Computed example of a mutant assay.
Amino acid sequence: MTKIAKRAVLSALLPLTLIACGKGSEKQADDMPAMEGMEKGEAEKPAEKDAVTLSARQIADAGIEVGHPKGGGSAGMIELPALVQGDPQGLQVVSATIGGRVVALNRNLGQPVGRGDTLAVIESREAASLNAEIEAARARAALAQSNLRREQRLFAERVSPEQDLIAARTAATEANIAVRLAQQQLSATGGRAGALNRVAIRAPISGQVIARAATLGQTVAADGELYRIANLSRVTVAASLSPSDAGRIRPGARIVVTAAGRRQEARVTYVSPVLDETTRLVQLIATLDNRGEIWRVGEPVTASVELPATGDRTVTVPSTAVQSVENRTVVFVRTATGFKAVPVTTGRRDGDLVVITSGLTGGERIATTNSFTLKAELGKGGEMDMD
């Protein structure tokens, strides 16, 4: 090819090359803003909200323990001031059954008594009359029996008519009834105590003497108090509820009674269906087994009554697992990279446990101790400094 021809070909190709290069530059220039935007967006993308990134080694070094929430069934406990009272069926006032002079007192305060034991002896004219009536009734009954045997013999010998036999049998029956009546009247006073003018006052129940109102030689009237006996193997705890709480509690609910150095569980036995006219509160009663004699009648205690769960998803967590972050109540749930603060709704406290009414299902793994460390790290941005 001649030099002239080569120049002609180069002259034709040069514009096409310039056009192609121009288009490539324009395309590259158009792509730059998009790439810069992507890089800028990735750089400005924030870390996951409420997350704390920790390795297993850091979790162990921080002393953070992980566990599962406990299944519910309760919406927590409501604490109430309460009072220990004697079981109404286990408290008995022993009174004088007849008027007279106290000649014997056989028990002192604190001493045990058995049912039927003689507690006191009273001397009186009325006692003498009761005993004399028994003796007279027995004598009349013996005479009536003798007459009956005589009439039976005479009737058998055909000496006396049947009418006389019937009359003798009736008289014997009436005499026996009179004896039983006199004995029951004396028994109602406690029974004879040796001499005809004395009666014994006996314990109606087994228990312990908690009060002694009489003194030796004192003249007492009928129904005058002598002793008080209490069977303290069972006691009751009485408390007052607001109507709203009372509507959620039924007999059989669990109750925990606490006092200085003592704690015992029991069951609610009674929730009053009416409000007290003065306090406008509802009375609640629970029964305590007191065979160990650890509770005293009249003692103030604290009663924690279990409230029923409001739903099937109610769970409890240790109080150390609950934290407050930015005016939210949260629990830190374990994730693959650390923990995440999960907002929850809390219910009542049950000792060292807190009821979670919403926010957790019970299947999570949560930080149960030292969760305040996670709260502090969350405030720093969610990254724990590496040593």
Rank of each mutant, 00 (worst) to 15 (best):
T357Q: 00
A321K: 09
V333M: 09
G359R: 00
S11D: 12
R212I: 01
T373S: 09
E44L: 14
M1D: 11
F332V: 01
V271F: 00
F155M: 06
E299I: 12
A222K: 13
T346F: 07
N327S: 08
S206T: 13
I356T: 02
A156G: 14
E157C: 09
V237W: 00
D117G: 10
W295N: 03
A127V: 03
Q85G: 14
V121R: 06
P161H: 03
S272H: 13
A222N: 12
A137D: 03
R228A: 07
E265T: 11
V325P: 11
R349Q: 14
A182I: 11
G72T: 10
S242T: 14
G362R: 05
G86D: 09
M38K: 08
R313W: 01
D276I: 14
F339T: 02
D223A: 13
I134K: 13
R291I: 10
G224W: 10
G76Q: 07
K40L: 06
A221M: 09
M77N: 10
Q92A: 14
I122S: 04
D61L: 12
I255H: 03
V305L: 13
L109F: 02
L275V: 14
A172R: 06
L109Q: 04
A29F: 12
T345V: 14
R234A: 08
S74T: 10
T118F: 06
V257G: 06
R192Q: 12
N197W: 05
P69C: 04
S187C: 02
T310W: 01
S324F: 05
L353P: 03
S324R: 15
G311D: 01
V333K: 05
R153H: 12
A172T: 11
T215I: 04
I64S: 04
D164S: 08
D276M: 11
A211F: 06
R57Q: 13
S95W: 00
R138A: 14
Q184N: 15
P243L: 02
A104N: 10
K27I: 14
T337K: 10
I64W: 12
T118M: 05
D289P: 06
P343A: 11
R101C: 00
L54H: 07
V220D: 06
E48G: 03
V271S: 08
I285G: 04
L378P: 08
L80P: 06
I78E: 04
S160W: 04
R140T: 03
G298Y: 02
T329G: 04
R365I: 02
P46F: 01
Q92C: 08
Q58T: 09
